[in-house]
Design a protein around this nucleic acid. Structure first.
Lengths: 205, 205
DNA sequence: TATATATTTTGAACATCGTTTAATTTTATC
DNA sequence: GATAAAATTAAACGATGTTCAAAATATATA
């Protein structure tokens, strides 16, 4: 009871990833089990352990794909050269993706590896690509030799934006009626850019 | 094979919460199982289902206690009336708690209820208490009739701060070497307050 | 005090989970 | 066609959340 060359290893990997994606998207991350994915692709659970180290590893790979999709969506935003405006465009893309794929977004950000285990390098590199888009939007505020400051600012904006969406998503921000997420994110971005401009304008002039 | 009045229901609740806390703190949230907690308090797993609706419910209760502990720690910070300084003091408390109880902090913020289920009101109220501390720190920047704006600003700062710590904790911010988390948080707070002051100073003068 | 009732607590069971492994089937090699 | 290598599987293991009838205790009633 075994097969071969129905699919290559790469095809199998794609099948598994696609099935995992569909499962999470349809039924949430709690439905992402080895048996569910295996059944969806017509293989036994054991086969998945030929492709991934374990389920955690599979989730990291799936999150890697989600990260790519998010990057692609954010890349579609046009660049005007105005930091605030370009960040708003990124915000649009981010919230758009979150709205279209809430369960994948949840898995991407809420999931964390067991204690001790670190994210693999190829994953961190994908994160870096997304961060690069934020850096590019902030670029006009920085001089050519200030790439480190620029990178840190990008990380802060990215993380702040994520915090708003994350807490909102899990209901941990819903203290009495408040602004919608988009407005909060806009306020964060504009105020941060204003503050950044004030400090940096002073330093550079 | 049963007992009674070894402990009252309240004592049992305390025992369970304490055992759950110790388990998470020592071995991470993945070790928080019904059987582990039951064994730690000398009762059978079934008894836990007299105290909590299910494990998710137990986690929400534990997170409620964590929230109280965090609130207590943040309350200890002295208030000077200078928003930036007071926010830094809160930041100190926040990072201090995170450093002392990383696993409890993880469970508090990374855990999310299954799709559809909402956090109970008593929990949201506890969140509101913590948010109140941030609001108090920001208060000097707002007029007496602007409590809504003040609340929104507090939520934004709180969420932004959380985003930085959260992404940092899960390794999703570690793109090449960068600032430590404290510096990022400080930058976020100062720039945001600066931006907020610029906008609001204009409106009020 | 003896009996009846109500309440806790439990052990055992159920379905499911991640993961491992020996056995089986297929493919590739000679 | 026989042999070696590789892929796939079924079955099993231990552990999980959760349920529930039975058992044990406490309380109320007589």
């Amino acid at each position: 009871m075994a097969r071969r060359s129905d699919h290559t290893r790469e095809e199998l990997y794609d099948l598994a990833m696609e099935a995992a994606r569909a499962t999470v998207e349809a039924d949430g991350y709690r439905a992402l089990t080895a048996r569910n994915v295996a059944e969806a692709i017509g293989y036994s659970p054991g086969t998945l352990y030929n492709l991934f180290e374990n389920l955690d590893d599979m989730i990291v790979h799936l999150n890697g794909r989600t990260l790519e999709a998010l990057h692609e969506r954010l890349s579609a935003a046009a660049r005007t050269g105005d930091p605030a405006a370009d960040l708003m465009a990124l915000l649009d893309g981010y919230l758009g993706y979150l709205g279209d794929h809430p369960n994948l977004w949840s898995l991407l950000f809420d999931y964390s590896l067991p204690e001790g285990r670190d994210l693999p390098d190829w994953y961190v590199r994908k994160v870096g690509l997304v961060m690069g888009l934020v850096e590019a939007a902030l670029a006009p505020l920085f001089g050519p030799g200030e790439s480190e400051d620029r990178g840190n600012a990008a990380r802060i904006v990215w993380a702040g934006l994520h915090g708003i969406c994350s807490l909102n998503d899990t209901g941990k921000l819903r203290v009495v009626a408040t602004q919608p997420v988009r407005a909060m994110a806009e306020t964060l971005v504009t105020h941060f850019v204003t503050g950044l401009g004030a400090v940096r304008g002073g330093r550079r002039s």
